[in-house]
Each structure stands twice: as C-alpha cells, then as structure tokens.
Simulated assay, not measured.
Amino acid sequence: MSFFLVQRTIRRIPVKSKFLPYYLIAPVTLFLLCFFVYPFLLVASQAFSSGGDGYSFDNFSEILSYWKFPISLKNTLLLAAAVVPVQVALALLMATMVNRMEKGRDMVLYIWTIPLAISDLAAGIIWLAIFEQSGFLNSMMHALGVIDKPMNLLSYQNMGMVFLAIALAEIWRATAIMMVILVAGIGLIPKEYYEAAEVFGASPWKRFTKITLPLLRPSLQTALLLRVILAFEIFAVVAALGGTLFPVLMGQTYEYQFDLLNSGAASAMALVILAISIAFTIVIMRSLRVPKGIQI
C-alpha cells in the first residue's frame, strides 16, 4: 500500500521540478535518520553519561586507563598495517589478471569471491581447523617428518603464529572486497589509452604505472577506505583464532558490553574506534586525492 502511495506522490511531482532530487532522496534520508543518526546519538549520550543526570569523560578515562587498551590498540593497528598493504597488492594483481582474461573470466571471478559469502566467524573457524593442534598444518608437518608430535601453535608461547594465522585468515577472507571494486575500476579505463601506449612502445609495467594506477585512483581510494574501516572492526576472526590471547579494540567493546555489563564504557570504546577510523579516512583521502580531471 505504501509503495503505491509513494508512486502516486512521485507522479504528481513535475518532472522538471527543482525539488525532485530532494523528494527522491527523502526515503533514504529518513531511513538514515531513524536507523543511524538516532542510534548514534544514543550511543554518544551513553558514552558521555556519568551515571547520574550530568555528562562527563569518566567512561573515556576508564577505558583509556584500562591495562588492556594499549595492547588492544597496538594489536589492531599492527593487524591493519600488516593486512591492508598485502590485500591492496593482491587485489591489484588479481584485478589486472582478471581484466586481461578472454576466457574463463566469470568463473575465476566467482571462485575468488567465494570468501565474501563466508561470515567472519566461519572464516576464523576454517583457519582454526588448519592451525589447531589436530589440524591440517600439524598433520602435514608430522607426515613430512618436520615435527615429532603435534604442536599447540595457537598459544601464548607462539604469539607470532597467532598473529600470522589471524592475518592470513583476514587476507583470505576480505581481499575479494577490494578486488571486485578494482575490477570494476579497471573495466572503466578506455582501452584506447593502452593501445596508444603500446603503439609508442610502452612496456606492460609502464602501462600499469602510467595509465592503470593514475586512472584507478578513485576506485583504489574507495577500496582502501572500506578495507581500512573494516580492519579496525575486526572481531570474529580474532575471537576464533586468538581468543583472549590477542585482544583487539572491538573485542574490548564486546567485553565491556556483555561480560562487564558496562554500556557506558562500551559506547566510549565504540566512539574511540570511530574517531580512529575517521582519522585514517582523512589521511587516505588526502593521500589519494582524486584530480579534477579524473572522473573514472
């Protein structure tokens, strides 16, 4: 019934009306106000509440002085620094390969994007089956004679291996997100540019650095922004592979909300993660600023 009401309302609006764009974005705006802005204001209110009628920074002082916060921040930043550059390089390589394929392109794209259909927790459990004591990696090393008996790889004594397992799981799970965006971006670059460069004797590497990368900057900026923001929200993969051995910021938020039942501190932690994400977003947008002449 509401659909027909909206349709009837749109029909009454003159096609050339200057208010037409505002009518069209009104439903989306209303949705964002109800399900994003209002909940965000509630979270912000909880973060700054002092338990009484006033507001203070007590919740922020609590989370910043907690002994796990520096460790969680360091682990989150290290994971982002280790995972995102590798994913950018892999996504660029995969996207370039896909766009050069003449046959089997759709099948390769389908296979490479399968991890996108797997939830974070499921991806962590899959890699847990590889790295756990009775998992594939231990079985393979034992069969090859590398070790005498299965080892507990994911323990506090092997924190480097815990970090490696989480990084590999994230690279496997989320690289396809960037790859899909870059494939679309490369597909929008006119082929005439490559043909002209080839006529003038430009090597494949020269064509990639002088044509593909500059014209791919808008898509690369979008992919990098999305991936960096998601990197600061990593939780389920870490919970599956590292548990409490490898604390991260989102894990601390979960702990405050559901283990310690402290909604104010959890809200404050959420705002801290938001602030970090915004800071890195500004850095990325300034570093990969798209020139006005590039519209791809």
Results as ranks from 00 to 15, higher is better:
120 D>E: 09
70 P>D: 02
121 L>W: 02
224 L>Y: 06
205 W>D: 13
37 V>Q: 08
88 V>I: 15
18 K>V: 12
6 V>M: 06
180 V>M: 04
50 S>Y: 08
122 A>Q: 07
133 Q>R: 10
148 D>N: 13
51 G>F: 02
255 E>D: 09
123 A>D: 00
43 V>C: 03
170 E>A: 01
100 R>I: 00
182 L>D: 02
204 P>S: 08
102 E>N: 15
272 V>M: 07
194 Y>H: 10
110 Y>K: 04
28 V>C: 09
225 L>Y: 13
60 F>S: 02
137 L>F: 08
136 F>A: 09
32 L>S: 12
161 M>E: 09
213 L>Y: 12
186 I>E: 05
23 Y>S: 05
49 S>V: 01
207 R>M: 01
77 L>P: 00
81 A>K: 13
43 V>D: 12
98 V>A: 06
214 P>Y: 07
54 G>H: 11
24 L>A: 02
183 V>H: 02
171 I>F: 09
29 T>P: 00
289 R>T: 14
148 D>E: 10
244 T>E: 05
19 F>E: 15
267 S>I: 01
221 Q>E: 13
151 M>S: 11
24 L>M: 02
137 L>Q: 09
125 I>T: 10
62 E>Y: 09
215 L>F: 10
157 Q>T: 14
38 Y>Q: 05
287 S>K: 11
155 S>I: 03
271 L>Y: 04
115 P>N: 04
76 T>A: 01
160 G>S: 13
50 S>T: 13
295 Q>D: 07
21 P>L: 07
166 I>N: 09
154 L>A: 00
12 R>S: 12
261 L>R: 10
268 A>F: 10
174 A>K: 02
104 G>I: 10
140 M>T: 15
100 R>G: 05
65 S>H: 12
1 M>H: 14
294 I>E: 06
68 K>P: 01
101 M>E: 00
210 K>F: 08
283 V>M: 13
258 F>Y: 13
189 I>F: 05
171 I>A: 01
13 I>V: 08
146 V>L: 06
114 I>V: 15
274 L>K: 05
170 E>C: 07
96 T>I: 15
131 F>G: 02
219 S>N: 11
57 F>G: 03
238 V>I: 14
226 L>A: 04
88 V>H: 07
91 A>W: 02
193 Y>C: 01
96 T>H: 06
130 I>C: 01
95 A>I: 07
35 F>W: 08
222 T>G: 10
130 I>L: 11
176 A>D: 12
274 L>T: 13
69 F>D: 11
253 T>Q: 06
88 V>E: 08
22 Y>A: 03
290 V>R: 04
261 L>E: 10
156 Y>W: 12
292 K>Y: 13
274 L>A: 08
225 L>Q: 08
281 T>W: 08
92 L>G: 03
260 L>F: 12
283 V>N: 06
129 A>C: 01
99 N>R: 05
198 E>K: 03
77 L>H: 02
194 Y>I: 01
44 A>F: 11
49 S>I: 09
275 A>R: 04
29 T>Y: 04
98 V>W: 06
61 S>T: 15
35 F>G: 08
65 S>N: 13
156 Y>K: 14
158 N>G: 01
111 I>Y: 00
108 V>M: 08
264 G>V: 14
206 K>G: 07
122 A>I: 12
74 K>G: 11
158 N>F: 04
133 Q>I: 13
179 M>D: 12
132 E>F: 09
233 E>T: 03
196 A>E: 10
